[in-house]
C-alpha cells in the first residue's frame, strides 16, 4: 500500500475523531483498519492523546464559588435597585411614542375628513347658491381648523389626561 493511501485513511481517522465524517466513510475506514497496522497505530496514538487530555485535573480555589456568589448577589441587588428608574424611563418613552402615534392618526383623519367634507359641500353649492370660495372657507373654519386643533391638543395635554397608560 502506498503512503498516499495511508494518508487518506489517516485523514479519515482525524475526521472520525472530530465527528466530521460521513457514515459511508466511517464504514470504509473500519474495513481498512481491520487490515492496516500503520493506520491502526495512528488511531491508537490519537486515542491516547484524547485520553491524555482527560488526565488533567485543575485545582479550583475553594473560595472561588463563594466569592462569585457574593459578587452575583451584590450585582443583582444593584440591578434591582436601578430597575424602577429604568422602567419609569422606558414607560415615558413608550407614552411619548403613543402620543405621537395618536397625533399622526388624528392629523391624517383631519386631512382626509376635510377632503371628503369639501367634496360633499361642493355638491351643495348649486342648490344653496354658495360660491366655491365660500365652501372652501366654510370647510376650513368649521372642519379643518377645529380637527387640526384637536390633534394638536393631544400633544399639549399631560399624559394622565390623554388616557394613555
Amino acid at each position: 500500500m502506498n503512503i498516499d493511501h495511508h494518508e487518506g485513511f489517516q485523514r479519515m481517522i482525524d475526521e472520525s475523531l472530530a465527528a466530521a465524517i460521513s457514515a459511508e466513510k466511517e464504514q470504509s475506514l473500519r474495513e481498512h483498519l481491520a487490515t492496516c497496522a500503520p493506520c491502526l497505530e495512528y488511531l491508537s496514538a490519537s486515542n491516547r492523546v484524547i485520553a491524555g487530555l482527560s488526565g488533567f485535573s485543575f485545582e479550583v480555589n475553594p473560595t472561588l464559588n463563594a466569592r462569585v456568589l457574593v459578587a452575583l448577589k451584590l450585582q443583582a441587588q444593584q440591578v434591582r435597585a436601578a430597575q424602577p428608574g429604568r422602567q419609569r424611563l422606558m414607560r415615558q418613552h413608550n407614552v411619548q411614542f403613543k402620543v405621537w402615534a395618536a397625533f399622526a392618526v388624528a392629523l391624517s383623519m383631519s386631512i382626509v375628513g376635510s377632503a371628503l367634507i369639501y367634496q360633499v359641500a361642493k355638491l351643495l353649492t348649486v342648490p344653496m347658491h354658495f360660491g366655491t370660495a365660500q365652501v372652501q372657507a366654510g370647510v376650513l373654519v368649521f372642519w379643518l381648523l377645529p380637527s387640526f386643533c384637536s390633534a394638536l391638543r393631544l400633544l399639549a395635554a399631560p399624559g394622565e389626561n390623554r388616557g394613555i397608560a
Binding site: E15, L17, A20, E41, S44, A45, S46, R48, V49, G52
Partner: peptide, 25 residues
Amino acid sequence: PVSTVASRIYRGLATLRPQFEGEIA
C-alpha cells in the same frame, strides 16, 4: 467556520500525536 475548527483539531492532534507514536497501547 466549521472547516476551520476541524482543521484546528487535526493540527492539534498532529502536534501531540508524536508523543505516543511507535508504541502499542
